[in-house]
Design a protein around this nucleic acid. Sequence first.
DNA 1: TCGACTCTCACATTTGAACAGG
DNA 2: ACCTGTTCAAATGTGAGAGTCG
Length: 437
Amino acid sequence: MQHISGKPNMMIPSPPTAEPYHQGNVRMTLEKADLWKSFHNLGTEMIITKHGRRMFPHCNVSLSGLQPYTNYVLMVEMVPVDNSRYRWNKGQWDMAGKAEPQLPCRTYVHPDSPTPGSYWMKQSVSFLKLKLTNHTLDQHGHIILHSMHRYIPRFSVVQADSLHSVRWGHFHYFSFPETSFTAVTAYQNTKIAKLKIDHNPFAKGFKGENTRTHSKSWGDNMVSAKEDLFSPWAIEQDPSQSHSLHTELLELHDHRQDYSTEEQMVPGPASMSSQPCRSVEHGRLPSPSSVVEDCKGRRSYESHLRDVATVPGHKTNSPGPVRDMGHTPLAQAMPQDYRMSPVHLPTSSKTYPGYLGYSYPLYGHYTTNQGMGQWSEGGTGQYPGQSLTHHLPFFTSQTLTADHGTHQRSVHHHGNTEAEWSWSQYLTSSYCAWCSI
DNA sequence: TCGACTCTCACATTTGAACAGG
DNA sequence: ACCTGTTCAAATGTGAGAGTCG
């Protein structure tokens, strides 16, 4: 299992209902990491349908380091890995041009949110119910993705007594490289389909069959000899033939290493051991991260946040704890669209937030004046096909800068006078704080 | 017009929650 | 309270066919 952990800001302004206190190191562990790695080695594909499709494997994490009696909100969102569209060609994924315009980014709020840290830490947290869709007008709150695009889930842990106080909460972000996937409407790689059949109980009916996927298109593309190059075993034999995503991640890692010397690398998942997991904190100078190794020799990733968050001048009229677990007010309130503002950070292409576990204060809002976010144009010169797009879903009235040398980012809050989106609207909207880098 | 590529839908099968009855 | 059996909604990948695009 892979651990990534983030240490929250110990000097963050008080959330509406909480007094300042020292937070321990928040740590997140991906459950069933071996299964994820099995898929990742082949190039994970996730089916997306009009009516929504669950992920398999589904996201399942365990948490530690939370305050037992403090409420937290857990969320997950799908972050584009790069700026490219892909196609399955002759047994491998090839780039097929620029990505489609960014869709409304949605965040899936765990239905148990908010709930005390002791609850989250008691057992693993499953995001089984999360569904992916390609229906851009989806009304069910499913996460909207583009087919033939690559994404990576990003988990958020926010200390908040209710959804209404999430805004003031401090976000801890966690991503696991082996959970990255290509969204597809039909499986392209038969090995992926077979692996799913082997492990997904609902697909038991297909066990034992000679599974084929879309022979019409697959027939031409299927070059079994070449496909075998992408098997985990072949990858071990010849790493140069490993899945392009692997290579991509490695390249991104290298770029990132060049970019910042302040971030400390830690080992990634076992099967992708050459991949690092990093932690960076947003809105401040990155502080050194530390590697935590547990008694089982598993390494965790831990970031330390020291900065003071700037909280907008809001009256903190928190509605108070929401403990109606059964009705999940958060889940009802959150799954909505928001407009993402395309913002290009010159240095962003050198970063790969997919590895990151970081945290930063959340504030600000975004406007409806923004059109649908578009892919960032910049940065591709240096890293063709690898550039990262960073979106600012609700920072449109803010200026966000990135300092190349110090990796320092600052957010200039312009107040909340605009009426574009009120906080209540935000609350009924999902957000993609990842994109807010 | 054609072919390649991608998407949609119906289908058979399986799981698991809910419910009733003992 | 517990166990067992039944029902049914939801989930799965498959494969045919439709739609889109160059």
